[in-house]
Write a protein that binds this DNA or RNA. Structure first.
Length: 196
DNA sequence: CGGGAGATGGGCT
DNA sequence: GCCCATCTCCCGA
């Protein structure tokens, strides 16, 4: 089946709409290990506007520069000395917003993903976290700033999600802005990083 | 099976 | 030097 790649206008919207709208879509990376992909089941929104937990809150720096650029690009950053996190830039140039992809349901390239994650993992521990899914899909430093509007890295239509199937909560792993209901996930999906 | 601590390195004060 | 949008292992129950 042909990929129906999500186009730039989808990302030219406020970060909360995009965060919700990404649920049920397929994140695909084609690289040396072949094609790996998963359905997006958990996202979080970050915005420089009134959100102290956002990397861009204090203004533009080398690390967060991609967030200030055009929508439809990957913002990948390194965290805790071990892990990468993958974000999608939204809205318009100068407006620093991004959606963190927190969990996937594995779809293609299972063998490659297992190999990249190392050791033996249960299937529901393969991509159920922002650091885990980057490792599984082979996303790292060199993908930062890359377009996600065409291969090798893109997001495509996959499943239609009903509003009633979406759960909402505070974001995970931050100290400021915990109370904002900016985390979105598929209720009852076993690949979500944590239930709430 | 739930909680806690250690690993580990880059970014920013 | 401290913080950090995390993961894994190990412990106790």
């Amino acid at each position: 089946m042909q990929d129906r790649i999500v186009s730039r206008d989808f990302y030219e919207a406020d970060v909360l709409s995009v965060a919700k709208g990404l649920l049920g879509r397929l994140l695909v990376h084609c690289s040396e290990g072949g094609r790996t992909s998963g359905m997006i089941v958990e996202t979080e929104a970050y915005s420089a506007e009134g959100d102290p937990s956002c990397h861009a809150w204090r203004g533009k720096t080398n690390r967060n520069a991609v967030m200030f650029g055009p929508p439809g690009r990957a913002y990948v950053y390194f965290i805790y000395g071990n892990h990468y996190c993958f974000n999608v830039v939204t809205n318009r140039v100068g407006r620093a917003e991004a959606v963190l992809i927190r969990a996937l349901e594995p779809v293609e390239g299972m063998e490659t993903m297992h190999k990249r994650r190392g050791k033996h993992h249960q299937i529901n521990n393969l991509t159920s976290g922002p650091g885990k899914l980057c490792a599984a899909l082979g996303i790292g430093r060199s993908e930062n700033g890359l377009s996600i509007l065409e291969p090798p890295l893109f997001i495509a239509a996959y499943r239609e999600i009903e509003t009633a199937a979406i759960g909402i909560s505070g974001r995970i792993g931050i100290s400021r802005g915990k109370e904002k209901p900016w985390r979105f996930f598929l209720r009852d999906n076993p690949f979500v990083s944590r239930m709430r």
